[in-house]
Amino acid sequence: MKRQFDEELKTLQEKLLQMASLAQDSIATAIKSLEERNEEYANKVLEQEKEINLLDIKIDELCMKLFALRQPMAVDLRLITASLRISSDLERIGDQSVNIIDRTLELLKVPVLKPLIDIPRMASLAENMVKDSITAFVNRDDVLARNVCERDDEVDKLNDQIFRELLTYMMDDHTSIKRAVDLILIGRHLERIADHATNISENVIYFVLGKTIKHHCEKFNYEHED
C-alpha cells in the first residue's frame, strides 16, 4: 500500500542527498583550491557551506514534523532517526571543508613547502567514503556501509604519516613551521571528514538492520538487545 507518508519520507531522503552532494563537492573544491593554488574556489566552498547549513535546519524541521505528526514506527522510525544524525554529520563535513579552505588561504600567501602527495590521496579516500556512505544509504546496502567503516583506518594511517613527515620539515627548518602546521591541520580536517563518513555508515547499518555498531561497541561485546 502506498502511503502519503512515503512521499514525505522521499522528500526527506531527497534533501539529504542534495546535502550530501554539496558536502562531497565542497571537499573536492577545497582540495582543488589547495592543489591548484587558486583562491577563487574559496567563495564556492563558503557558499556551499551556507546551503548545507540551511538544509540541515530544513531536515531537522522535517524530521520533527514527521515524528510529531506521523508517530513513525519500525523502519520508518529508524529512517527518520538515521536521517537526523546523518544530516548533522554532513553539516560537520561542510564545516571541515571551510576549515580546509581557511588553511589553504593561509598557505597561498607563502611559497610551497613541498609537493602535495598524501593530502590529495587522503582527500580522495575521504571523499569516496562520503560518497559510498550515501550510496549505501540510498541503496539500503549494509555491506557497503561496513566497507566504508573499515576504510577509516587507512585514512587515519595516512594522517599519521603526514604528521610524521611534516614533523621532519619542522625540525629541519623553523621557517617551515607555519606552513607545516597548516598542512597538518588540513590532514586533521580530512581525517575528521572520514570519521563523519564512518558515522553516516554506522547510521545506515542502524537504519537497514536495526543494529547499533557505533563506538566500536561490537568489540567490547555491547549486548544489543536481540
Binding site: M1, R3, F5, M73, A74, D76, L77, R78, E225
Partner: peptide
C-alpha cells in the same frame, strides 16, 4: 521496544508502519 523499533517479521513491520 523491539517490536516497534525493529520487528523481525515483515508482516509485523508492514502492519505497524501502516502499510
Amino acid at each position: 521496544t523491539k517490536i516497534f523499533t525493529n520487528p523481525k517479521n515483515k508482516l509485523t513491520e508492514d502492519y505497524i508502519t501502516g502499510r
